[in-house]
């Protein structure tokens, strides 16, 4: 039975980290209806900034982690200001193409630094002994990953429901023209959405980097890897990202635990989440919690 519970816990932990990685997609899509294809590169950049601050500058890891979130907050805001601001009102496909270009630019910039081709790891920070209870084990990094995700989800949920800025963002998401007519600055909302996405990406980068080590290929791959989570959750739903992340994490762990290696099956942990995604989308084409828009002509 402890095997089953271990899979549940591992699945939920992995799912939480997926949700954290997916948040950036959701935040940008929620406000501007744009899919940021360069999200993985921002995740990697966040991880490398944390590393640089802690190893090269000598700042303690937890402060470096917070500082990297602040830095990526402004970096992502600058990216939006430089590359995307002028595209407001242009067809969405044009904006998405720009984010593909942005991905190549960020790739190139990271390869210009030593981080592009080095393998590194954060200095040991958390206790190496895992937390074990009743035969179920979880590492400190994983636990912190879950807590950071919870803080982000809680904070953003409050932000969107209670704060004026958050409500402005929701208004822009619903109808840009109507939002502008009541004095909301759409460009500022877009900038803020990118900035928050940058911040969550840095948090995800720090957690993933702590688990896998710092390798650019591995880190930026998570940008695309969490794409099914975003689609399943419903693109513009924060809660959707969390629920979908956990569903994906659980499917992966159960597939790895019960299917792979049995009856000649292998690699089901990688394939099954996509199969489930396809089936669910047949019944819920807007994802589990996505907004179902009805256009009346």
């Amino acid at each position: 039975m402890s095997y089953f519970f271990q899979l549940v816990v591992s699945g939920m932990v992995v799912g939480s980290i997926y949700a954290l990685s997916a948040l950036g997609f959701v935040l940008i899509y929620k406000s501007s209806r744009v899919l940021n294809i360069a999200h993985g590169q921002i995740i990697a950049a966040g991880a490398f900034i944390t590393y640089a601050l802690t190893v090269m500058v000598g700042i303690p890891l937890y402060i470096a982690f917070l500082l990297s979130m602040i830095i990526t907050f402004f970096l992502a805001m600058a990216v939006e200001r430089i590359f995307l601001r002028k595209l407001i009102g242009e067809p969405i496909i044009s904006v998405i193409m720009v984010t593909i270009g942005l991905m190549s630019i960020l790739d190139g910039l990271i390869y210009l630094t030593p981080f592009g081709t080095l393998n590194l790891s954060f200095p040991p920070f958390f206790p190496t002994t895992p937390i074990s209870l009743g035969g179920v084990s979880i590492s400190w990094t994983q636990l912190v990953g879950v807590l950071v995700t919870a803080v982000f989800i809680g904070g953003l949920s409050w932000f969107f429901k209670k704060s004026t800025l958050g409500i402005s963002m929701r208004a822009v998401s619903d109808d840009q023209l109507a939002a502008m007519s009541v004095g909301i600055s759409v460009p500022k909302v877009f900038g803020l959405a990118w900035a928050l996405a940058g911040m969550s990406a840095a948090a995800a980068g720090g957690i993933i980097g702590n688990i896998t080590g710092l390798n650019f290929d591995t880190l930026h791959a998570f940008g695309i890897l969490v794409f099914p989570v975003v689609i399943l959750g419903g693109l513009d739903s924060i809660i959707g990202a969390v629920v979908a992340g956990i569903i994906m994490g659980l499917i992966q762990q159960f597939a790895a635990g019960y299917l792979d290696g049995n009856w000649g099956l292998n690699g089901t942990a990688d394939v099954l989440p996509y199969i489930v995604l396809l089936i669910l989308l047949l019944f819920k084409p807007h994802g589990l919690f996505g907004t179902h828009e009805i256009e009346r002509v």
Binding site: Y3, Q6, L7, S10, V13, V14, I17, S137, Q142, I208, I211, T212, T218, A221, F222, L225, Q252, Q253, F254, A256, G257, D260, G261, N266, G267, A269, D270
Partner: peptide, 22 residues
């Protein structure tokens, strides 16, 4: 006993426990 083709896994617990059980 088994040939495992890996993906980009964040947690290999299930695989490790499975291999251990074999």
């Amino acid at each position: 006993v088994e040939v495992v083709e890996h993906g980009k896994d964040l947690d290999n617990t299930a695989m490790i426990k499975r291999l251990q059980s074999k």
